[in-house]
């Protein structure tokens, strides 16, 4: 009854959806349209932009220098997504198969990082990875220990410990992005695995399959919608990552978002920044289009 009203009564429908619609138009579509228009404009003076319909910004944005940065951003985002998937899948499975008592706590553990600001989390991670950080201290202690044991058995000691450069390089960017994005991967995977009928897994075991084969032939294919959702929800923000490469990356690890930021701030070239932004948005559109075109996997259950 209520559902029917919901669908047929246009007044109710409009009243309910209007605030959201207004919000989206006012704060998303209009600003986006302005930026989109800027991407066809030229700088006239410090604050003035003349929307002349030029394509020069896009020409410049597709120059080799920027294409390589786009390419690198894609590569980093893809690597981050892959690592998140490989790490996240067993985590999601562990949560799914944990006892009723433990599951909410494990899920809380996954979501806990969201309670802290990203900036603070990133700085904390930097303290961990710095040359004087805990990671290096730990490694140093292991190194010294090994050296000491070697002298005990009469071997040459190891050379003195040189802290490893864990920060301000590509490794740090990937590590930081994986750290930030892992929950985005785990949650949709968990949602998909939790819906999986346990008896399908038992049936596979019953028919002689081992655990590994059961996971590869039954669990993974049936969790495919969750995997796709997890990949998209990780890949897209990772592609536009700004803070992590900015704080943790080195001179050669800037991603496209950092370049865009520079155009809007230091370079004061809004039209070019807008063109770069929209190239990124087009790329994301393409990703989503590919995802929605893929063959529909039969629903689980």
């Amino acid at each position: 009854m209520a559902e029917q009203d919901w669908k047929t009564n246009r007044g109710v429908f409009a009243a309910v959806s209007l605030p959201t619609l207004l919000w989206v138009i006012l704060f998303f579509l209009i600003p986006m349209a302005i930026v989109w228009l800027y991407s066809f404009g030229e700088n006239k003076g410090l604050t003035e932009i003349d929307i002349s319909g030029t394509l020069d910004n896009y020409k410049r944005a597709t120059e080799w220098l920027y294409l390589t940065i786009f390419g690198k951003s894609f590569a980093v985002a893809a690597l981050v997504t892959l690592i998140c998937l490989i790490v996240g899948f067993p985590v999601a499975m562990a949560i799914t198969f944990a006892s009723e008592k433990w599951r909410p706590w494990l899920l809380l553990g996954i979501m806990l990082p969201f309670w802290t600001n990203l900036l603070i989390r990133t700085y904390a991670l930097m303290m961990l990875l710095g040359t004087q950080g805990f990671a290096n201290k730990g490694l140093g202690a292991l190194w010294e220990g090994t050296s000491w044991i070697k002298t005990l058995v009469g071997l040459q000691p190891l050379p003195t410990w040189e802290p490893v450069q864990l920060l301000f390089n590509n490794f740090a960017v990937v590590f930081g992005l994986v750290y930030v994005h892992l929950p985005f991967m785990v949650l949709p995977l968990y949602a998909a695995l939790d819906r999986l009928d346990r008896s399908l897994i038992e049936a596979s075991l019953d028919l002689g399959a081992g655990h590994f084969r059961t996971i590869m032939r039954i669990v993974v294919p049936l969790a495919a919608p969750g995997i796709v959702a997890g990949v998209m929800i990780t890949l897209i923000p990772a592609l536009g990552a700004y803070l992590t490469p900015d704080l943790m990356g080195g001179t050669d690890s800037q991603m496209i978002a950092n370049v865009i930021e520079r155009q809007f701030k230091k370079a004061n070239d809004w039209p070019f920044g807008a063109a770069l932004s929209f190239l990124l948005i087009y790329a994301m559109f393409a990703l989503i289009a590919i995802q929605s075109m893929r063959r529909k996997v039969p629903a689980v259950g």
């Binding site: 008896s199 049936a203 596979s204």
Partner: peptide, 26 residues
């Protein structure tokens, strides 16, 4: 071997693939 209450037929496999599942593993 067991026939489950929910049947537990693998939804992503054809009938033949379902029935062949255990044989292929064996």
């Amino acid at each position: 071997n067991m026939v489950f209450q929910s049947y537990a037929v693998f939804p992503h496999m054809s009938v033949a693939d379902n029935v062949a599942y255990g044989l292929k593993i064996a």
